[in-house]
C-alpha cells in the first residue's frame, strides 16, 4: 500500500513538474507549426536546445534574467528564420528534412570542443552556473510548502518557484495562441494548412504567414528549452531526437490544432509515463534490471504514438468530424 501511494504521488507530481510545462510549451509551438499551419517541424528539440544555450550562456556572460530570457527567445526566432528562408518556398517535406538535420547539427556543435568555453562541450553547462539570477527573482520565503500530497522546497531548482514560473509562461502562451488563432490571422494559417495555392490565389502572402508561424512556434520551442533546463542542467545529449519525438507524442495525444491539447497531452503523457516506469520498476524488480524498464517504457511510448495516430488521429481534444474526410 505504501509502495502504491508512493508511485501514485510520484506520478501526480508529474502533472505540475517543470519538465511537463516545458514539454507543454514545446508542443504549443509545434502545434502552431503543424496543427495550425501544416508545417512539418521534426526538429523541435533543436529550437529547445538553442533556447537553452541562449539563456544559459547569456546568464553566464552576466545578463540579468529577463535579458537572458529575451536572448533565449531571440535564438529560437533566429533559427526559425535561418531554416525558413530557404525552405518555406519549397514543398513541405523540405522543411522536415532541414529541421531534423538542423537539430542534430546544433546538438553536435554543442557537444564539440570547438566552442567548449561557452557550451561546455559534451558535458554541457552545470545548472549552478546559470540558475542564480532566476532563483534570486523568487518572491517566495524560504522553506517548504505542502499542497495536498505534493511537497517541494519554495526556492531552488526543483521548487515551487520554478513550477509557478514555468506554468505562468505556459499560461501566457496559451492565452496568446488563443488570441491569434481565433482571429482572421489564424484563419489564414488554417487555410495554408489546407491548400496553400488556394490561399495564394486569394491574394495572401503565404510565405510571410508561414514564416510568422515558424518563428512564433520556434520561439515557443526555445523558451520551452529554457524551462526545460531551469531545474536541471544544459546537456546537449538530453535534447536530441527522443525529445522531439516525445513533443510530437504530447501534441498528437492532446490533439493537433486544439488550444489545450498540448497542455493536456503533456500532463497526461508524463503522468502515465511515470506511473509506467515506477510501477514496472517496482513490479518487475525481480524480472529485469531498472535500465531495461526504461527501455521498455520508451518502447511503449512508441507503440502508444502509433496507436494514437491510427485509432485516434484527432487526439483527445480534437474534433473527429474534422478528420472525417480525405484532405486531399
Amino acid at each position: 500500500m505504501d509502495e502504491l501511494s508512493r508511485i501514485l504521488i510520484q506520478a501526480l507530481g508529474q502533472l505540475i513538474a517543470p519538465a511537463t510545462a516545458a514539454y507543454a510549451l514545446a508542443a504549443i509551438g509545434l502545434n502552431l507549426h503543424f496543427g495550425y499551419t501544416g508545417l512539418l517541424n521534426i526538429g523541435q528539440a533543436g529550437f529547445m536546445l538553442m533556447g537553452a544555450y541562449g539563456f544559459a550562456i547569456a546568464t553566464i556572460e552576466g545578463a540579468p534574467f529577463w535579458l537572458a530570457f529575451l536572448v533565449s527567445a531571440g535564438a529560437g526566432a533566429l533559427l526559425a528564420l535561418l531554416l525558413g528562408i530557404p525552405t518555406l518556398k519549397l514543398r513541405g517535406d523540405y522543411l522536415a528534412i532541414v529541421t531534423i538535420s538542423a537539430a542534430e547539427i546544433i546538438r553536435f556543435a554543442g557537444r564539440s570542443t570547438l566552442w567548449a568555453d561557452y557550451t561546455g562541450g559534451a558535458s554541457g553547462l552545470a545548472g549552478s552556473t546559470y540558475k542564480g539570477p532566476f532563483q534570486a527573482l523568487s518572491p517566495l520565503p524560504d522553506g517548504r510548502t505542502t499542497i495536498g500530497p505534493l511537497e517541494y522546497l519554495n526556492n531552488g531548482s526543483d521548487s515551487w518557484w520554478t513550477r509557478i514560473f514555468a506554468w505562468s509562461v505556459v499560461l501566457v502562451a496559451v492565452l496568446l495562441v488563443w488570441l491569434i488563432t481565433r482571429s482572421p490571422w489564424g484563419r489564414v494559417l488554417k487555410g495554408i494548412r489546407e491548400d496553400e495555392d488556394a490561399v495564394r490565389a486569394l491574394g495572401k502572402n503565404v510565405f510571410a504567414y508561414k514564416m510568422q508561424a515558424l518563428v512564433l512556434g520556434g520561439v515557443a520551442g526555445s523558451l520551452a528549452g529554457l524551462l526545460f533546463v531551469l531545474p536541471i542542467s544544459v546537456a546537449p545529449d538530453n535534447m536530441g531526437r527522443t525529445l522531439t519525438f516525445f513533443v510530437w507524442t504530447v501534441m498528437l495525444l492532446g490533439g493537433a490544432a486544439t488550444l489545450f491539447g498540448p497542455v493536456l497531452g503533456a500532463m497526461l503523457f508524463f503522468f502515465v509515463y511515470m506511473l509506467l516506469r515506477t510501477g514496472m520498476r517496482a513490479g518487475l524488480a525481480d524480472v529485469m534490471p531498472a535500465q531495461n524498464v526504461e527501455h521498455l517504457a520508451g518502447l511503449m511510448v512508441g507503440v502508444a504514438l502509433m496507436c494514437i495516430v491510427i485509432f485516434r488521429p484527432q487526439g483527445i481534444l480534437g474534433n473527429k468530424k474534422e478528420l472525417a474526410f480525405d484532405v486531399r
Binding site: 482572421p184 489564414v188 488554417k190 487555410g191 495555392d197 490561399v199 486569394l202 491574394g203 474534422e322 484532405v327
Partner: peptide, 27 residues
C-alpha cells in the same frame, strides 16, 4: 481547391481583402 477543414463561411471570409485582423498584431 476547397479548404476542407474550414467551414464554407470561413472559406468565404478568408478571401475578403484588407482585413486588419489578418495582421499578426491586429489579430
Amino acid at each position: 481547391k476547397a479548404l476542407s477543414r474550414l467551414t464554407v463561411l470561413q472559406n468565404m471570409l478568408l478571401a475578403a481583402p484588407d482585413n486588419p485582423g489578418e495582421n499578426l498584431f491586429g489579430a
